[in-house]
Amino acid sequence: MNAPGTAGFFLRLLRRQLVLALRRPIEIINPLLFFAIVMALFPLGLGPAPDTLAAFAPGVLWIIALLACLLTSESVFRGDFEDGSLEQLLLSPQPLYFSALTYSTAHWLTTGLLLALVSPVFALMLNLPASAIPALAASLFLGTGILSLIGCIGAALTVGLKRGGMLISLLVLPLYVPVLIFGSAAVRGAVEGIPVAPYLAILGAMLSLGIALAPLAVAAGLRISLDA
């Protein structure tokens, strides 16, 4: 029962999500601000010695990016659940798999991609060697895509709950762990002069797996959440 213009529908849905995000710019700025604030605290806690900061920088940057993604993922479906848009999406003749992928893509474009783009600035503030910055941006570019896909699974499962905030962390964080391990390892590898391509390849493989499977879980989660 495929309605005509499936590709057109997903472009319109993506445009809708992006326009909605742009008209509420605070939601785009929030994760970036969170990134900046938390990162500014680390020199205060760890001491301002450049070598110490540089040693911790790969892990610190990746953990903050991960938490910023986690914080924003809760709200991916919230508004659309409350105003009934999700009901309409579920009744749509269009495949829900691609709709779920569209929501994840919109979330990534408004958080992960921006974090990856601004990360070099923050990396310099933590005294990360310049040679590791391309690896940082590349690993965040791929890694935040996976984080958005996983975050959407948690968001879809908890959207029907009044306070899903803590639950979504419990559901999602274990799945975030491999991304964090390989993402920060890529940056550390670049600092130590080890080839980073294998790490990025693993992140790319995880992203491919996520694109293939996560929308199925998101679709099922949405159907369960709206059934109540």
Binding site: P4, F9, V19, L20, D83, L86, L89, L91, S92, Q94
Partner: peptide, 23 residues
């Protein structure tokens, strides 16, 4: 629930409606 987004105009709400019935 009306599925109407407060931040979108009526025209945008209909054109980008998530029910995706037609363009």
């Amino acid at each position: 629930h009306s599925a109407v987004k407060a931040l979108l105009s009526p025209r945008e709400n209909i054109a980008w409606h998530p029910s995706g019935e037609a363009d």
